[in-house]
Design a protein around this nucleic acid. Structure first.
Lengths: 191, 191
DNA sequence: CGAATATGCGTACGATGGTACATACTTGGG
DNA sequence: CCCAAGTATGTACCATCGTACGCATATTCG
């Protein structure tokens, strides 16, 4: 009897990567079995074999996106010690070294939109957001954490819309500092 | 010779409204000629007659959305006199009386995503954003205006994802106040 | 070495999409 | 009243989609 070892172990992963590429370039609506197969350089039957329906494929692709993104953004924030470190990490995540690429933002936006109609993907998004909030709450009040989270998303969104103008780092820094400072002064009635 | 007066002058508007309804309910990917025609209660040929291709129809629909939304959100902000008024207006626009409905947010998100592939729609979005910034800059520094704008969008987005929990008004108020206050203290190096 | 079983693939079908276009209907001027 | 021209519609074509399914290939065990 056969063990079930795949002939090409990379294939599944390659399909998922191709799916994300297609979604980033042309949107979820363009992410068809055929288009993804072409992108991955595998035959149509290969994609339907690994993912019995399209919803499964897309959700799986978004899952790998989350798994890839989460540690990348979480780490610098987790290492922050002082409020200043937190602000710096936030700035970096918004428009600095650890900031997502435009493709990543597009992907995340597509995910967001797809989540409006897919409970599974909505769950992924909430997981992602909750993980971010958990980290932020280690140094900020709940309110400030939520505000910071929303602001970061707003700026990412802005970057996606205005591809060419970079966000001014000083402005971003000031805004985060204002929110983080608010957290400090608000801490008494909050706690 | 005939004057060119339409037999049913309402029809064009009705089709555009139906398009927005479909987009809000099922997303742009579901906005087909046939689906929109069904929603508007008109035959397929009627939609293709008024809009020679689908892109035109969708862009027109988004244009009417912008025209409808813009005055609604601009007015309260324009009437704000003091910084406190501005903060109150922002809170109201985020989660209060003048806040967009969930449908409006969904529509706006669909527009955002569609804009990623349609230069025309991207232009509409930038218009909308710029109009908002112009008003905000009457009482805030450029940096604060941008931060406030991004934060509002982030919270709208949050509301779309977490349909059921209302944003805490106090938290929203504090965050906006922090950003507006920052604008005041930052005003010297800014100007 | 078969034979059984998992892996991988090609084709076909029914549904749905945008669009083209021939046809009808409505209107107002002659 | 009737015809020209704009308005409105029904149908049909071709492409593409998700999915089903039968067949080919590879692998491992007895």
């Amino acid at each position: 009897m056969r063990k079930g070892k795949p002939n090409d172990p990379e294939r599944r992963t390659r399909i998922l990567r191709a799916a994300l590429e297609v979604i980033a370039m042309e949107g979820v609506h363009a992410a068809s079995y055929r288009r993804i197969a072409a992108q991955a350089g595998v035959p149509l039957g290969s994609t339907t074999y690994y993912f019995s329906d399209l919803e499964t494929l897309i959700v799986s692709a978004f899952k790998t996106l989350r798994d890839g993104l989460e540690p990348r953004y979480a780490a610098p924030l987790r290492d922050a010690r002082t409020d200043g470190d937190v602000v710096d990490a936030l700035v970096a995540a918004t428009c600095g070294a650890t900031a997502p690429t435009l493709d990543d933002i597009r992907l995340y936006e597509e995910m967001h939109r797809y989540g409006a109609r897919s409970p599974q993907v909505a769950g992924l998004l909430r997981d992602f957001q909750e993980a971010s909030l958990v980290i932020l709450r280690r140094s900020l009040s709940d309110g400030a954490a939520r505000a910071v989270d929303a602001l970061m998303w707003g700026w990412w969104s802005y970057r996606a819309l205005n591809e060419h103008d970079r966000l001014d780092t000083g402005m971003v820094h000031d805004a985060y500092r204002a929110l983080v400072t608010m957290a400090a002064t608000e801490l008494v009635p909050q706690k």
